[in-house]
Computed example of a mutant assay.
Amino acid sequence: MSDVRTRLRTALATTTERLGAAGVPSPSVDARALLAHAADTDRHLLLLDALPEDFEDRLEASTARRERREPLQLILGRAPFRRLELAVRPGVFIPRPETELALDLLREHTRGPLAEIVDLCAGSGALGASVLDELPGSRVLSVEIEESAAELTAENLEAAGPGRGRVLRADLLGEIPELDAAAPVDAVLSNPPYIPAGAVPQDPEVAAHDPHRALFGGGEDGLEVPRAVIDWAGRLLRPGGMLVMEHADVQGPAARELVQAHGGFEDVATARDLTGRDRFLLARRAAAGAQAGRGRLSR
């Protein structure tokens, strides 16, 4: 036991120092996660009374990857999201903690049932999988353009809600008859690409490992794909159905203006994330016959 504790203390101190020197933002937290991964355990490290024979070799390999600023989630093969541990893999956008609030906002602002939900630009399937996990009576249609991401979405949906999710591989900028056929639905969720063309991600984990197609929203303002999301929400939502769409913290006014220009929505607002930054567009589909642009525009 004492030998295990000594090995763990030494490994934790060394790994934390190495990650800190490499510029990793949370070296101690990441070091503990890498130690648990090398030990092949979900238990607290202090509870371990034995380590695998290849513990040091596994830890060295994963530490070297993190030193090169490969995302921790890719090294571990999973990412926490709300109540779930999602599968992740290279080439697919890694879910972010700030996106988790989307489901809370949906439940807070929805009137009526949440049975049929569409997740646009699904990526890893994080939003759709969380819906299936937390709303047992729901069904989810996830739409994703990239083949590898669509395959991962299908995997995460099936794990969260067997038989209740399906994936459609399609480009939102084109016509999608099968998606049109899904209407009417109770909600549309989306974390689309929205970074403007001239913005360059600063974190190496993002710049080198998130696919650019999942980051840049198209056009100089980055709002080409978000505009398509709003258009599809207008086509898909039942009267009273909710759109919750993530966007950059500087895009709140522009996103509300897109909804106003589209027409047919009410109760349009911007919601802030847990750090107080504008993060989500909220819009309710107006009743049939409502005037274009009806509703309140607010923060």
Score class of each variant (00 low, 15 high):
3 D>M: 11
4 V>H: 07
4 V>K: 02
9 R>L: 14
9 R>W: 11
13 A>S: 15
14 T>K: 12
17 E>A: 15
19 L>Q: 03
23 G>L: 02
27 P>E: 05
29 V>Q: 09
36 A>I: 01
37 H>C: 04
39 A>C: 02
42 D>P: 06
43 R>A: 15
48 L>W: 07
50 A>G: 06
51 L>F: 04
54 D>G: 05
54 D>F: 04
57 D>W: 12
59 L>D: 03
67 E>F: 08
68 R>T: 14
70 E>S: 05
74 L>R: 00
74 L>S: 02
79 A>H: 00
83 R>F: 02
84 L>K: 10
87 A>N: 12
89 R>A: 02
90 P>F: 01
92 V>F: 01
92 V>D: 01
94 I>H: 00
98 E>W: 04
101 L>C: 09
106 L>V: 09
109 H>Q: 10
117 I>R: 08
118 V>Q: 02
118 V>D: 00
126 A>N: 01
126 A>W: 00
130 S>P: 11
132 L>K: 06
136 P>Y: 03
138 S>I: 02
139 R>A: 13
145 I>P: 02
155 E>R: 15
158 E>T: 12
161 G>E: 03
163 G>I: 04
168 L>T: 11
169 R>Q: 14
169 R>Y: 09
172 L>K: 09
176 I>Y: 05
177 P>V: 05
178 E>Y: 07
179 L>K: 03
181 A>S: 13
185 V>H: 03
186 D>C: 08
188 V>S: 01
189 L>N: 08
191 N>R: 09
195 I>T: 09
196 P>Y: 09
198 G>A: 12
202 Q>D: 08
203 D>T: 08
203 D>P: 01
205 E>N: 05
206 V>C: 00
207 A>E: 04
210 D>E: 02
213 R>K: 14
216 F>L: 06
216 F>R: 09
220 E>F: 10
229 V>F: 07
230 I>Y: 03
232 W>K: 14
235 R>E: 11
236 L>P: 09
238 R>W: 05
239 P>I: 05
244 V>P: 01
247 H>N: 02
248 A>I: 03
248 A>T: 07
249 D>W: 13
257 E>Y: 10
259 V>W: 04
265 F>Y: 03
266 E>D: 12
271 A>F: 11
284 R>I: 10
286 A>L: 12
289 G>E: 10
